[in-house]
Structures are given as structure tokens and as C-alpha cells.
Amino acid sequence: MRIVVDRDLCDGIGMCQSMAHEFFELDDDDVMHVLEENPGEEHRKQLTAAINSCPVLALSLEG
């Protein structure tokens, strides 16, 4: 699976980071970075929760 970010929608709110800090990180300018773009299947439940928490729907999973 792959984490996909819609950069046009992302506002750098950080809900994803608070729920899955090992995969998402906000820099000092509130720009979100994906730390592991292709995580293992064992992380799907955690990532789905983090992605669903995004208030602007900027995140998704492929695969």
C-alpha cells in the first residue's frame, strides 16, 4: 500500500502526525512529510484511522 497526500488540500493541521507519528511529520512551516510512503500491511488499521482523522481529507491509501 502507499500513502497519498493531496498537497493542494493539506493545511498542516497535524491530526495524522498525532495519530501516526512514525509515518507523518510536520516541519516548522507546517508542511506535512510522509516518513514512510510504502508501509507494511500490518499498519493499515493505524493508518486508516490517521487518514480518516484528516479534517480536510488530504490523505488516502492506495492498494
Rank of each mutant, 00 (worst) to 15 (best):
Leu47Gly: 06
Met32Asn: 02
Ala50Asp: 10
Val34Trp: 00
Val5Leu: 15
Phe24Arg: 00
Ile51Pro: 00
Gly14Pro: 05
Asp8Thr: 14
Asp11His: 10
His33Met: 08
Leu47Met: 11
Cys54Arg: 05
Leu47Thr: 15
Leu26Gln: 01
Leu35Val: 08
Asp8Ile: 09
Ser53Ala: 15
Thr48Trp: 07
Asn38Phe: 08
Gly63Glu: 15
Gly40His: 06
Gly40Pro: 12
Asn52Tyr: 04
Phe24Glu: 03
His21Met: 04
Glu22Asp: 15
Gln17Ser: 01
Ser18Met: 14
Arg44Phe: 09
Asp27Val: 14
Ser60Arg: 11
Gly14Leu: 10
His43Arg: 13
Gly12Met: 04
Leu57Tyr: 14
Glu36Lys: 04
Val34Lys: 01
Pro39Gly: 10
Asp11Gln: 12
Asn38Ser: 11
Leu57Asp: 15
His43Pro: 09
Met19Glu: 14
Met15Thr: 04
Lys45Asn: 04
Glu42Ile: 09
Phe24Cys: 00
Ser18Pro: 03
Glu62Cys: 08
Glu37Asp: 07
Glu36Asp: 12
Ala49Gln: 11
Ser53Glu: 12
Cys54Tyr: 07
Val34Gly: 00
Asn38Tyr: 06
Cys10Pro: 02
Ala58Pro: 10
Lys45Cys: 00
Glu25Pro: 00
Ser53Ile: 02
Asp6His: 05
Leu61Thr: 10
Val31Met: 07
Leu57Cys: 10
Gln46Tyr: 03
Cys10Ser: 02
Cys16His: 04
Ala58Gln: 08
Asp29Arg: 13
Met1Ile: 09
Ile51Arg: 01
Leu61Trp: 07
Ala58Lys: 04
Asn52Cys: 03
Asp30Pro: 00
Leu35Glu: 03
Ala49Phe: 11
Met15Ser: 12
Lys45Ala: 11
Asp28Val: 11
Glu62Ile: 13
Arg7Phe: 11
Ala58Trp: 06
Glu42Cys: 06
Glu37Ile: 11
Leu35Ser: 05
Arg44Lys: 15
His43Trp: 12
Ala20Val: 12
Ile3Tyr: 00
Gly63Ile: 09
Cys10Leu: 05
Ser18Leu: 15
Met1Ala: 13
Leu9Gln: 05
Leu26Cys: 07
Asp8Arg: 07
Asp8His: 05
Ile13Gln: 08
Ile13Glu: 11
Ser53Leu: 10
Gln46His: 08
Glu22Ser: 15
Asn52Pro: 01
Asp6Met: 02
Leu61Glu: 05
Glu22His: 09
Gly14Glu: 04
Glu25His: 09
Asp11Cys: 02
Val4Ile: 14
His21Ala: 13
Val31Thr: 06
Gly14Met: 10
Glu42His: 11
Leu59Pro: 13
His33Glu: 09
Asp6Ser: 03
Asp8Met: 06
Glu22Thr: 07
Asp11Trp: 11
Ile3Asp: 00
Cys10Asp: 06
Val5Gln: 13
Asp6Gln: 03
Gly40Ile: 02
His21Leu: 01
Leu35Phe: 09
Ala49Asn: 09
Asp29Met: 13
Ser53Trp: 05
Val5Gly: 05
Met15His: 10
Met19Val: 06
Cys16Thr: 06
Val31Cys: 05
Cys54Ala: 12
Asp29His: 12
Glu37Gly: 01
Glu62Gln: 15
Gln17Gly: 01
Glu36Gln: 06
Asn52Val: 06
Glu41Ala: 15
Leu59Cys: 14
Gly12Pro: 11
Asp30Gln: 03
Glu22Pro: 02
Arg44Cys: 04
Val4Ser: 03
Leu9Trp: 03
Asp30Tyr: 01
Val4Cys: 02
Val34Asn: 02
Asp29Ser: 14
His21Asp: 13
Val5Phe: 07
Asn52His: 08
